[in-house]
Nucleic acid binder design. Structure first.
Lengths: 102, 102
DNA sequence: TTTATCTACTATATTTTTTATAGTAAAGGT
DNA sequence: ACCTTTACTATAAAAAATATAGTAGATAAA
Protein backbone atom coordinates (compact mmCIF):
# COMPACT_ATOMS: atom_id res chain seq x y z
CA UNK A 1 0.00 0.00 0.00
CA UNK A 2 1.25 3.44 -0.91
CA UNK A 3 0.59 5.07 2.44
CA UNK A 4 1.88 2.53 4.90
CA UNK A 5 -0.78 0.71 6.82
CA UNK A 6 0.81 -0.47 10.07
CA UNK A 7 -1.35 -3.54 10.20
CA UNK A 8 -0.82 -4.78 6.66
CA UNK A 9 1.48 -7.50 8.02
CA UNK A 10 -1.53 -8.85 9.87
CA UNK A 11 -4.30 -8.10 7.39
CA UNK A 12 -2.46 -10.13 4.79
CA UNK A 13 -3.58 -13.29 6.53
CA UNK A 14 -6.37 -12.12 8.83
CA UNK A 15 -8.24 -10.54 5.96
CA UNK A 16 -8.60 -13.91 4.28
CA UNK A 17 -11.74 -15.97 4.51
CA UNK A 18 -11.82 -18.36 7.51
CA UNK A 19 -8.61 -17.17 9.17
CA UNK A 20 -10.25 -15.28 12.00
CA UNK A 21 -12.68 -18.13 12.73
CA UNK A 22 -9.91 -20.67 12.54
CA UNK A 23 -7.83 -18.87 15.12
CA UNK A 24 -10.86 -18.69 17.35
CA UNK A 25 -11.45 -22.44 17.17
CA UNK A 26 -7.80 -23.21 17.67
CA UNK A 27 -7.93 -21.83 21.20
CA UNK A 28 -8.15 -25.54 21.86
CA UNK A 29 -5.81 -27.87 20.04
CA UNK A 30 -7.66 -29.64 17.28
CA UNK A 31 -7.34 -32.22 14.59
CA UNK A 32 -8.02 -31.62 10.93
CA UNK A 33 -11.32 -33.46 10.84
CA UNK A 34 -12.53 -31.74 13.99
CA UNK A 35 -11.93 -28.36 12.42
CA UNK A 36 -13.76 -29.44 9.31
CA UNK A 37 -16.79 -30.48 11.34
CA UNK A 38 -16.82 -27.47 13.63
CA UNK A 39 -16.56 -25.17 10.68
CA UNK A 40 -19.62 -26.67 9.15
CA UNK A 41 -17.97 -28.80 6.52
CA UNK A 42 -15.46 -26.25 5.34
CA UNK A 43 -13.94 -27.99 2.37
CA UNK A 44 -10.63 -29.68 3.01
CA UNK A 45 -8.76 -27.93 0.22
CA UNK A 46 -9.41 -24.53 1.73
CA UNK A 47 -8.78 -25.74 5.26
CA UNK A 48 -5.51 -27.27 4.19
CA UNK A 49 -4.44 -24.05 2.45
CA UNK A 50 -5.35 -21.97 5.46
CA UNK A 51 -3.54 -24.19 7.93
CA UNK A 52 -0.44 -24.00 5.79
CA UNK A 53 -0.66 -20.23 5.57
CA UNK A 54 -1.01 -19.88 9.34
CA UNK A 55 1.78 -22.32 9.95
CA UNK A 56 4.03 -20.36 7.62
CA UNK A 57 3.19 -17.20 9.58
CA UNK A 58 4.01 -19.08 12.79
CA UNK A 59 0.56 -18.43 14.18
CA UNK A 60 -0.16 -22.12 14.57
CA UNK A 61 1.92 -25.25 14.87
CA UNK A 62 1.31 -28.65 13.37
CA UNK A 63 2.26 -31.69 15.43
CA UNK A 64 2.34 -35.24 14.19
CA UNK A 65 2.08 -37.91 16.86
CA UNK A 66 5.05 -40.25 16.59
CA UNK A 67 3.06 -43.39 17.38
CA UNK A 68 0.48 -42.66 14.71
CA UNK A 69 1.33 -40.71 11.60
CA UNK A 70 -2.35 -40.16 10.97
CA UNK A 71 -2.72 -38.33 14.22
CA UNK A 72 -2.03 -34.64 13.63
CA UNK A 73 -2.89 -31.80 15.96
CA UNK A 74 -2.95 -28.10 15.35
CA UNK A 75 -2.59 -25.48 18.06
CA UNK A 76 -1.68 -21.84 18.53
CA UNK A 77 1.90 -20.76 19.01
CA UNK A 78 2.78 -17.99 21.47
CA UNK A 79 2.44 -15.55 18.60
CA UNK A 80 -0.95 -16.99 17.78
CA UNK A 81 -2.16 -16.92 21.36
CA UNK A 82 -1.13 -13.32 21.56
CA UNK A 83 -3.62 -12.64 18.76
CA UNK A 84 -6.47 -13.70 21.02
CA UNK A 85 -6.48 -10.20 22.49
CA UNK A 86 -7.76 -9.10 19.11
CA UNK A 87 -10.46 -11.73 19.24
CA UNK A 88 -11.47 -10.52 22.65
CA UNK A 89 -11.91 -6.99 21.39
CA UNK A 90 -13.90 -8.36 18.50
CA UNK A 91 -16.10 -10.37 20.83
CA UNK A 92 -16.73 -7.25 22.88
CA UNK A 93 -17.63 -5.34 19.78
CA UNK A 94 -20.04 -8.03 18.63
CA UNK A 95 -21.69 -8.12 22.05
CA UNK A 96 -22.15 -4.36 21.92
CA UNK A 97 -23.61 -4.24 18.41
CA UNK A 98 -25.31 -7.59 18.11
CA UNK A 99 -26.32 -8.27 21.72
CA UNK A 100 -28.74 -11.01 20.72
CA UNK A 101 -25.97 -13.01 19.03
CA UNK A 102 -23.61 -13.46 21.95
CA UNK B 1 -20.86 -22.85 11.73
CA UNK B 2 -21.96 -25.88 13.70
CA UNK B 3 -20.44 -24.84 16.99
CA UNK B 4 -21.37 -21.22 17.28
CA UNK B 5 -18.52 -18.83 16.82
CA UNK B 6 -19.43 -15.64 18.68
CA UNK B 7 -17.59 -13.46 16.24
CA UNK B 8 -18.98 -14.89 13.02
CA UNK B 9 -21.17 -11.78 12.66
CA UNK B 10 -17.93 -9.83 12.40
CA UNK B 11 -15.74 -12.27 10.53
CA UNK B 12 -18.30 -12.35 7.73
CA UNK B 13 -17.10 -8.96 6.59
CA UNK B 14 -13.77 -8.51 8.38
CA UNK B 15 -12.46 -11.78 6.99
CA UNK B 16 -12.76 -10.44 3.47
CA UNK B 17 -9.83 -9.02 1.57
CA UNK B 18 -9.31 -5.27 2.05
CA UNK B 19 -11.97 -4.76 4.73
CA UNK B 20 -9.57 -4.41 7.64
CA UNK B 21 -7.32 -2.04 5.71
CA UNK B 22 -10.26 -0.05 4.48
CA UNK B 23 -11.55 0.55 7.98
CA UNK B 24 -8.09 1.63 8.99
CA UNK B 25 -7.88 4.23 6.24
CA UNK B 26 -11.39 5.44 6.89
CA UNK B 27 -10.35 6.78 10.27
CA UNK B 28 -10.32 9.93 8.22
CA UNK B 29 -13.21 10.64 5.90
CA UNK B 30 -12.18 9.94 2.34
CA UNK B 31 -13.34 10.08 -1.22
CA UNK B 32 -13.43 7.11 -3.56
CA UNK B 33 -10.41 8.11 -5.60
CA UNK B 34 -8.37 8.86 -2.49
CA UNK B 35 -9.01 5.35 -1.20
CA UNK B 36 -8.02 3.92 -4.53
CA UNK B 37 -4.74 5.79 -4.47
CA UNK B 38 -3.92 5.10 -0.84
CA UNK B 39 -4.63 1.42 -1.33
CA UNK B 40 -2.12 1.25 -4.12
CA UNK B 41 -4.51 1.20 -7.02
CA UNK B 42 -7.00 -1.25 -5.61
CA UNK B 43 -9.29 -1.80 -8.51
CA UNK B 44 -12.51 0.17 -8.45
CA UNK B 45 -14.79 -2.85 -8.83
CA UNK B 46 -13.53 -4.39 -5.61
CA UNK B 47 -13.44 -1.06 -3.80
CA UNK B 48 -17.01 -0.39 -4.85
CA UNK B 49 -18.14 -3.83 -3.68
CA UNK B 50 -16.40 -3.44 -0.35
CA UNK B 51 -17.79 0.01 0.31
CA UNK B 52 -21.28 -1.28 -0.38
CA UNK B 53 -20.78 -4.23 1.95
CA UNK B 54 -19.55 -2.01 4.76
CA UNK B 55 -22.34 0.46 4.16
CA UNK B 56 -24.88 -2.37 4.35
CA UNK B 57 -23.33 -3.44 7.66
CA UNK B 58 -23.57 0.16 8.85
CA UNK B 59 -19.86 0.33 9.49
CA UNK B 60 -19.39 3.25 7.13
CA UNK B 61 -21.61 5.93 5.71
CA UNK B 62 -21.70 7.38 2.25
CA UNK B 63 -22.41 11.07 1.89
CA UNK B 64 -23.07 12.88 -1.34
CA UNK B 65 -22.49 16.58 -1.27
CA UNK B 66 -25.65 18.38 -2.34
CA UNK B 67 -23.83 21.05 -4.32
CA UNK B 68 -21.83 18.53 -6.31
CA UNK B 69 -23.18 15.10 -7.06
CA UNK B 70 -19.68 13.93 -7.96
CA UNK B 71 -18.43 14.72 -4.51
CA UNK B 72 -18.91 11.66 -2.32
CA UNK B 73 -17.30 11.06 1.04
CA UNK B 74 -17.05 7.91 3.06
CA UNK B 75 -16.56 7.82 6.82
CA UNK B 76 -17.00 5.54 9.79
CA UNK B 77 -20.28 5.39 11.66
CA UNK B 78 -20.32 5.07 15.46
CA UNK B 79 -20.41 1.31 14.99
CA UNK B 80 -17.44 1.54 12.66
CA UNK B 81 -15.46 3.80 14.98
CA UNK B 82 -16.07 1.35 17.77
CA UNK B 83 -14.23 -1.23 15.69
CA UNK B 84 -11.06 0.81 15.94
CA UNK B 85 -10.40 -0.79 19.32
CA UNK B 86 -9.81 -3.99 17.38
CA UNK B 87 -7.41 -2.19 15.09
CA UNK B 88 -5.56 -0.87 18.07
CA UNK B 89 -5.10 -4.36 19.46
CA UNK B 90 -3.93 -5.47 16.06
CA UNK B 91 -1.46 -2.61 15.85
CA UNK B 92 -0.11 -3.59 19.25
CA UNK B 93 0.23 -7.17 18.13
CA UNK B 94 2.09 -6.16 14.98
CA UNK B 95 4.45 -3.96 16.96
CA UNK B 96 5.20 -6.87 19.29
CA UNK B 97 5.83 -9.44 16.56
CA UNK B 98 7.11 -7.30 13.72
CA UNK B 99 8.87 -4.49 15.62
CA UNK B 100 10.76 -3.36 12.55
CA UNK B 101 7.54 -2.77 10.60
CA UNK B 102 5.87 -0.26 12.90
C1' DT C 1 -8.51 -62.34 7.73
C1' DT C 2 -11.16 -59.93 4.80
C1' DT C 3 -13.85 -55.85 5.03
C1' DA C 4 -15.13 -51.50 6.67
C1' DT C 5 -14.04 -47.14 8.94
C1' DC C 6 -11.31 -43.26 10.26
C1' DT C 7 -7.91 -39.73 9.40
C1' DA C 8 -5.44 -36.38 6.83
C1' DC C 9 -5.21 -34.97 3.36
C1' DT C 10 -4.76 -34.31 -2.52
C1' DA C 11 -7.00 -34.05 -7.38
C1' DT C 12 -10.29 -32.28 -10.49
C1' DA C 13 -13.82 -29.49 -12.14
C1' DT C 14 -17.10 -25.82 -11.26
C1' DT C 15 -18.41 -21.54 -9.17
C1' DT C 16 -17.33 -17.27 -7.06
C1' DT C 17 -14.17 -13.37 -6.29
C1' DT C 18 -10.71 -10.39 -7.54
C1' DT C 19 -8.21 -8.04 -10.83
C1' DA C 20 -6.80 -5.41 -15.04
C1' DT C 21 -8.41 -2.54 -18.25
C1' DA C 22 -11.45 0.33 -20.55
C1' DG C 23 -15.33 3.13 -20.61
C1' DT C 24 -19.21 6.43 -19.16
C1' DA C 25 -21.46 10.52 -17.66
C1' DA C 26 -21.60 14.69 -15.06
C1' DA C 27 -19.19 18.67 -13.27
C1' DG C 28 -15.42 22.01 -13.18
C1' DG C 29 -11.54 24.39 -14.96
C1' DT C 30 -8.86 26.87 -18.90
C1' DA D 1 -15.09 24.23 -26.80
C1' DC D 2 -11.96 21.08 -24.74
C1' DC D 3 -9.51 18.70 -21.19
C1' DT D 4 -9.50 16.84 -16.49
C1' DT D 5 -11.44 15.04 -12.39
C1' DT D 6 -14.64 12.11 -9.98
C1' DA D 7 -17.30 8.10 -9.05
C1' DC D 8 -18.17 4.77 -10.54
C1' DT D 9 -19.88 0.38 -14.17
C1' DA D 10 -18.75 -3.26 -17.91
C1' DT D 11 -16.13 -6.92 -19.62
C1' DA D 12 -12.89 -10.43 -19.69
C1' DA D 13 -9.14 -12.88 -17.51
C1' DA D 14 -6.88 -14.67 -13.37
C1' DA D 15 -7.11 -16.34 -8.75
C1' DA D 16 -9.47 -18.40 -4.93
C1' DA D 17 -13.20 -21.18 -2.83
C1' DT D 18 -16.20 -24.99 -3.15
C1' DA D 19 -18.25 -29.64 -4.08
C1' DT D 20 -17.07 -33.97 -4.81
C1' DA D 21 -14.33 -37.89 -5.27
C1' DG D 22 -10.29 -40.30 -4.34
C1' DT D 23 -5.87 -42.05 -1.91
C1' DA D 24 -3.10 -44.27 1.47
C1' DG D 25 -2.13 -45.80 5.95
C1' DA D 26 -3.93 -47.32 10.42
C1' DT D 27 -7.28 -49.19 13.39
C1' DA D 28 -11.70 -51.72 14.31
C1' DA D 29 -15.34 -55.04 13.39
C1' DA D 30 -17.18 -59.39 11.39
Amino acid sequence: MKESCPISKATAFLGVKWTLDLIYFLQQRRRFCELQEIMDGLNPTTLSHRLKLLEAEEIIQREVFPDNQRHVEYSLTAKGKDLLAVHEELTNWVSRWYPEEV
